[in-house]
Amino acid sequence: MNIVVCVKQVPDTAGERKLRADDARLDREAADGLINELDEYAIEEALLLKEAHGGEVTVLTMGPDKATESIRKALSMGADKAVHLVDDALAGSDALATSYALAQVLRSIGFDLVVVGAESTDARMGAMAAMLAERLGVPQLSLASKVEIDGSTIRIHRQSEDGYQVVEGALPAVIGVVEKINEPRYPSFKGIMAAKKKPVQTMSLADAGIEPSLVGLANAATEVVDFADRPPRQAGTIVKDEGDGGVKAAEFLAAQKFI
């Protein structure tokens, strides 16, 4: 089975994240980049499926040169090879453009199964599995907390607001995984050494058949009008419980008319 796992490099959520003053793009140079943590679950699931059903795992990343750090990490976890879509014209692409660009690469490299994370910690769109499935015309099996493949049938548990649904489709398909699904492995020393020799193919817009007029900041379908650091929250009142903490909390709730 030819499994492609989509991995995004994002700024560290523990560090400071900023939009650039001139064009309101995420300042990716200023922040430390690492793998979007939810994508580690997608990589793990891809590796587990390969171990169970055979085949090959390809990492697909769209992002600047710097994203190679995340690609190496994914390879060191055990993925076999990687495709890095990198082109200056892609900078500032929104969800519509990103899904288009990724879909074009997926069409050109081919796949039986695409695995994506539930959402990225920076954009938080949470819609990539749906958008890719729509573009590629294949089943969308997302918000999965469990995945089973049986021949060409794939069955998942899809998390919903009131429990879960069992959802079934046929390969080829796109799956999106939530963090309940597995426990991502740590790269071993051997894995890290092996990753250095694994093939990483870079692709440009032209290589993937991507129309330059459909990607990048200037062609985005959405725009940031303005942005501002949120004024620091007014420091709250913090009291130490001296045997009256519950009473004090009740007074606060009453003053705010909650009780």
Binding site: R17, K18, A24, A221, T222, E223, V224, A228, R230
Partner: peptide, 13 residues
């Protein structure tokens, strides 16, 4: 960004 930044956005297409 975890509430650190407030953004106003619009759809232009």
């Amino acid at each position: 960004f975890g509430g650190a930044t407030t953004v106003h956005s619009a759809v232009k297409q």
